[in-house]
């Protein structure tokens, strides 16, 4: 039982990180129907930002966290402006291919600048392990869970209660109609990318708390897993991304826990296939009528 609860905590903290990243996927997909495959690599850049701040410049952990989040946010907006905006009217497949191109560009640029070896990210805080009964609970896991829940609440408030959120929902509903209603579509899309990338920045900090190494390709598998989480939850849905992320995290942990660690990734992607076959809209996705 002790081991079960410990594994539950492992699964929840891993799932939280997937959830934060899945949110970024989901928001961007919701607004311009783009699967932003560069999203995982933004996390990689965030991790390197922390490394540069703490290891190279000798700055404190708070500055490093800010550096990660700010550089992710800026990068997300810049990518959107340079790579995606010019293709607004192009077929969706062009956008998708561009996203893959951006992903490779980021990975190999990082390899060129930082080398292919792993960089160790210094600890942001001194980790402690609390014992509750016979279950070990690390400070890292607690912080990961709390930050994820807080990010979710802030995001829900932002989308549901603010004017910008209203504009985001309107653009996602019907871009042309929103433009006619006087909504600045371009800045709304940029804002969506900024929020999604900021979440990736937070995700990258949490990731580095648990797995303190940065490599140029760290984002690709992470991004794919988050993509599966977003699809599972219903792509385009914010609570769906959260549920999907946690579900994938728990699933991975329990597959490993029963001794099938080699099958972990296979199970994750089998879930993707099953969801696409059986219920393409995921847990909470809306059924979209194709416009004729």
């Amino acid at each position: 039982m002790t081991v079960f609860f410990s594994q539950l905590i492992n699964g929840l903290s891993l799932g939280s990180i997937y959830a934060l990243i899945a949110l970024g996927y989901s928001m961007v997909y919701g607004i311009i129907l783009l699967l932003n495959f560069a999203h995982g690599d933004i996390i990689m850049v965030g991790a390197y930002a922390s490394w540069v701040a703490m290891n190279q410049l000798g700055l404190g952990p708070v500055t490093a966290v800010c550096a990660s989040i700010i550089s992710c946010t800026l990068l997300g907006v810049i990518i959107e402006k340079i790579a995606y905006t010019p293709l607004r009217g192009a077929p969706r497949i062009s956008l998708l291919i561009t996203a893959i191109g951006v992903s490779f560009f980021l990975e190999y640029s990082a390899e060129l600048v930082f080398g292919s070896g792993a960089k160790v990210i210094p600890a942001y805080f001194e980790s402690k392990v609390f014992r509750i009964g016979s279950v070990n609970l690390s400070l890292t896991a607690i912080i990961t869970l709390l930050v994820t829940v807080a990010s979710m609440l802030v995001l829900t408030f932002l989308v549901q209660q603010t004017k910008l959120g209203k504009a985001m929902r309107a653009v996602s509903e019907d871009m042309d109609a929103a433009r006619l209603m006087g909504i600045n579509v371009n800045s709304t899309i940029s804002f969506t990318f900024a929020v999604g990338s900021a979440l990736a920045g937070i995700g990258s900090v949490l990731y580095c708390c648990s797995y303190p190494q940065a490599t140029p390709t760290m984002g690709s598998m992470l991004g794919l897993k988050a993509f599966v989480a977003a699809v599972l939850g219903g792509i385009g849905s914010i609570p769906g991304a959260m549920i999907g992320g946690i579900a994938i995290g728990l699933c991975e942990c329990f597959v490993s826990a029963i001794g099938l660690s080699a099958w972990k990734d296979a199970v994750t992607f089998a879930i993707l296939i099953v969801v696409l076959l059986v219920k393409p809209t995921g847990f909470l996705g809306r059924k979209v009528q194709e416009k004729v």
Partner: peptide, 18 residues
């Protein structure tokens, strides 16, 4: 055991701890 490219070992380590 784990697979190449894995970064999460907490599950295995928790099993070992048990």
């Amino acid at each position: 055991s784990y697979s190449e490219g894995d970064v999460d070992f907490k599950t295995q380590l928790t099993t070992i701890l048990g």
